[in-house]
Each structure stands twice: as structure tokens, then as C-alpha cells.
């Protein structure tokens, strides 16, 4: 029996895709779904265990990750794609993403998030047009620190809160990837 812990990745305005994210299993943290799959028959029958529920279904997936499931008479086509620890499902025209949680990595996520606010990163791949940030200088909240261009559109990257520029990492004209570090910030004492 294969067993996984999945955490729904909430993107945009969508709430977690699964209603019961509180697992009955006390050993998993809230928001994480413990799921497992067992084979029920040679003919493609399965039982999925999710939290404290069990669902019988039939299904098949081809070599491309495309398949269908038949649950209680309803036929639903799907596509599954797994890249590293992110599982993305296309289901009835909607996408649902899940992080496959490694138990040792459970705690790492929170601290990475907290540190993110002292960095300005590229929200999209593109070219750095102009940098208003100067190392050592203070700025107000919403100050336009970097101006980028992507696909011929200008976009301003503003300060999330007041602070001081610690380091300017990129130069005007630089071609950067998405999430590339642009400017390091620090709080004013």
C-alpha cells in the first residue's frame, strides 16, 4: 500500500480544494492529508484512503499521466503531473496542486516564508529597467524601488514596508528569471 502526506497548495483566491483537511490521524499536522491507495482487484479496482474515509473506484492512467476514474458511476477524465514534490491535477477543467510532504521537511517551510519579506524578488521573468533603490538609503512603504519590463510591459516593484536598502543585487539592463533576488532590504532601527 502506497502512503502519502499531501498539503493542498492554495493559489489565487481558491480555498483548499478538499473539504476535510483536518486529518483524523493525530500524527499529521492540520492542513495535511494522509492518503493511501490500495489495489482492490486485478481489473483496475482501487480503494483510496483519505483521512478517515475510504473510497472505492476504478481507474487507469496512461504513460502520459492522462487517465480517468469511475467513482460511483461518474466518469471523470484527469491528468496528473508530478514535478519534484509538487503534484498537479487537472480535473474537469480545473487545476489542483498539492505538495507531497516529506516528514523531515515539515518544519522548514515556515521559516523560509518569514525571511522572504526582507527581499525583493522578480515577480516575473524580464529585464530590469530602472533601480531607484540605493544601498544604505531609507525608503517609505510602497516606494517604487525597481522598475522591470517583461514582454514590453513595465511593472513597478514597490517596498512592502518602510525600511532601508541593504544591498542592490542587480543592475539596470539585467535579464532575470522569475523569483530572482533584486534587492535586499532591512528594517530601520
Amino acid at each position: 500500500m502506497k502512503r502519502f502526506d499531501l498539503r493542498p497548495i492554495v493559489s489565487g483566491t481558491r480555498a483548499p480544494a478538499v473539504g476535510k483537511t483536518e486529518s483524523a490521524d493525530r500524527r499529521t499536522e492540520p492542513g495535511v492529508l494522509r492518503v493511501s491507495l490500495e489495489r482492490a482487484s486485478e481489473a483496475g479496482g482501487y480503494i483510496a484512503h483519505i483521512g478517515d474515509r475510504s473510497i472505492e473506484f476504478e481507474g487507469e492512467a496512461d504513460g502520459d499521466g492522462a487517465g480517468f476514474v469511475r467513482v460511483g458511476g461518474r466518469v471523470v477524465p484527469f491528468l496528473a503531473d508530478r514535478c519534484d514534490n509538487v503534484l498537479t491535477l487537472w480535473l474537469n477543467g480545473a487545476l489542483h496542486s498539492f505538495e507531497i510532504v516529506e516528514r523531515s521537511a515539515r518544519r522548514a517551510g515556515a521559516s523560509a516564508l518569514a525571511a522572504a519579506s526582507d527581499k525583493l524578488v522578480a515577480p516575473m521573468p524580464g529585464t530590469v529597467l530602472k533601480i531607484n533603490a540605493v544601498a544604505g538609503e531609507a525608503f517609505e512603504a510602497h516606494a517604487p524601488l525597481v522598475i522591470m519590463e517583461s514582454m514590453k510591459m513595465e511593472m513597478t516593484i514597490s517596498a512592502p514596508q518602510a525600511g532601508r536598502v541593504k544591498r542592490v543585487v542587480v543592475a539596470p539592463g539585467a535579464l532575470v528569471e522569475m523569483d530572482a533576488l533584486l534587492v535586499e532590504l532591512e528594517a530601520v532601527d
Binding site: V18, S36, L37, A48, I55, A61, V69, L89, F98
Partner: peptide, 13 residues
């Protein structure tokens, strides 16, 4: 549908 999603996510994972 929760049941459908459960089936697909286990199969997908």
C-alpha cells in the same frame, strides 16, 4: 467532488 478528487490524487501521487 471529494470522492473523485481522492481517487485522482491517490492515483496521481
Amino acid at each position: 467532488d471529494e470522492a473523485v478528487l481522492a481517487a485522482v490524487m491517490t492515483l496521481g501521487a
